[in-house]
C-alpha cells in the first residue's frame, strides 16, 4: 500500500528546484567558493553512498539493493550545497558522510530517524564549529518569487504532499505575524523580510516535508509540524537562535518513531520503478523495510 501522490517521483521535482536555486546563486549572486564546496558535497556524497551500499546492504539478508538511490543522494547533497557553508573541504566531506551514513546508522523499524541533510547540517555546525548557515544569502525579494513558483508547481502537478509544508509555514508565519505586526507594531515589510529567507523556504519545502522522516499518521503529522513551528518561533523570537527550524527538526525527529508506534498508519514509500518491480507492498510496521533512502 502506498500513500497516494502524483504519478512520479517527487525527488525529481526537488532536484530541479534545488538546481535552479543553486544556479541562481552561481550566476546572479556570484557564489564562487560555493562551486568547489558544492562539487565536494556531491562527489563525496556519491562515494559515501557506494561505501554504505557495500558495507550495510550485503550484511542485510533481507535487503534488495535499490538502483534508484541516486535521487536521494543528490537531493540531500544539494540541500547541503544550498545551506551549509564551511571553512574547508574536509568539513564538506564530513558533512556528506554524516548525511549519507545517518540513513544507515540511525534506523528504527526500517525507517531512518533523521532527515539526512538536516542532521548533516546540524551535526557539522555543532560538532566541528567550522561550518555555519547563512540564512540571508539569497536576499529577500527573490525568495518570495521562488516560494510562490514552487508552491504553484506543487499544487498544479501534485508532485508531493503539501500538508507538512503548509502546517509548518502557516503556523510559523502566523506566529511571527502576530508578534511582529499585531503586537509590536512593525510595518508589513518588516514581517515579509522575516519570512522570506532562503533557508526557511528550503527547509519548509524540501526538508521538513520529507515523507520518510515525518509521522505516518496524517493528523499526527500536521500537529507535529505545527509543534516544530511553535518551538522554532519561540527560539527565533525570544532566544535569538539562528537557523532554529533545523535544530528543532533534528531534535524532534527521535520522537517520530514513538508517534508512529502510538498512531499506526500506512507508511510512505517513494514511487520508483525498481522498487515497484521488486516489492510492491510494505504494509507491516514491524518488519524492517528494505528500502534504504
Amino acid at each position: 500500500m502506498r500513500i497516494k501522490t502524483a504519478g512520479w517521483d517527487a525527488r525529481y521535482f526537488q532536484m530541479t528546484f534545488q538546481l535552479i536555486f543553486l544556479s541562481y546563486g552561481f550566476l546572479w549572486l556570484h557564489w564562487n567558493t560555493e562551486l568547489i564546496s558544492g562539487l565536494i558535497f556531491i562527489t563525496s556524497g556519491f562515494v559515501f553512498q557506494y561505501i554504505a551500499d557495500v558495507l550495510f546492504i550485503k550484511k542485510n539478508a533481507l535487503a534488495i539493493r535499490n538502483k534508484n538511490n541516486w535521487q536521494s543522494v543528490l537531493v540531500s547533497c544539494l540541500s547541503l550545497c544550498l545551506l551549509l557553508k564551511t571553512n574547508g573541504w574536509f568539513i564538506c566531506v564530513l558533512a556528506s558522510a554524516i548525511t549519507i551514513f545517518s540513513k544507515y546508522i540511525f534506523r528504527i523499524r526500517g525507517k531512518h530517524i533523521f532527515n539526512p541533510s538536516a542532521l548533516g547540517i546540524a551535526a557539522t555546525v555543532y560538532l566541528t564549529g567550522n561550518a555555519w548557515i547563512s540564512p540571508a544569502q539569497w536576499g529577500s525579494s527573490i525568495v518570495l518569487l521562488f516560494a510562490i513558483t514552487c508552491l504553484g508547481c506543487i499544487v498544479v502537478t501534485k508532485v508531493q504532499k503539501l500538508d507538512v509544508t503548509l502546517a509548518f509555514t502557516g503556523t510559523y508565519a502566523a506566529l511571527l505575524f502576530a508578534r511582529q505586526v499585531l503586537y509590536q507594531g512593525w510595518p508589513l515589510d518588516f514581517f515579509m523580510q522575516s519570512v522570506t529567507t532562503g533557508s526557511l523556504l528550503l527547509f519548509s519545502f524540501f526538508m521538513i516535508s520529507d515523507p520518510k522522516t515525518t509521522p505516518d499518521h496524517p493528523a499526527v503529522r500536521i500537529i507535529w509540524a505545527m509543534a516544530v513551528a511553535l518551538i522554532s518561533f519561540y527560539l527565533t523570537a525570544f532566544k535569538f537562535v539562528n537557523g532554529a527550524p533545523i535544530w528543532v527538526l533534528v531534535c524532534s525527529q527521535p520522537f517520530v518513531p514513538l508517534l508512529d508506534l502510538l498512531f499506526k498508519a500506512k507508511r510512505f514509500e517513494w514511487k520508483t520503478p525498481s522498487v515497484e518491480k521488486k516489492f510492491s507492498i510494505i504494509n507491516s510496521t514491524i518488519k524492517p523495510s528494505n528500502n534504504y533512502h
Partner: peptide
C-alpha cells in the same frame, strides 16, 4: 574571537 561576522537578515556581498 572566532571569525568574520555576517548579516543574518540582509545578503552579504
Amino acid at each position: 574571537r572566532k571569525g568574520r561576522i555576517e548579516c543574518t537578515n540582509y545578503r552579504n556581498v
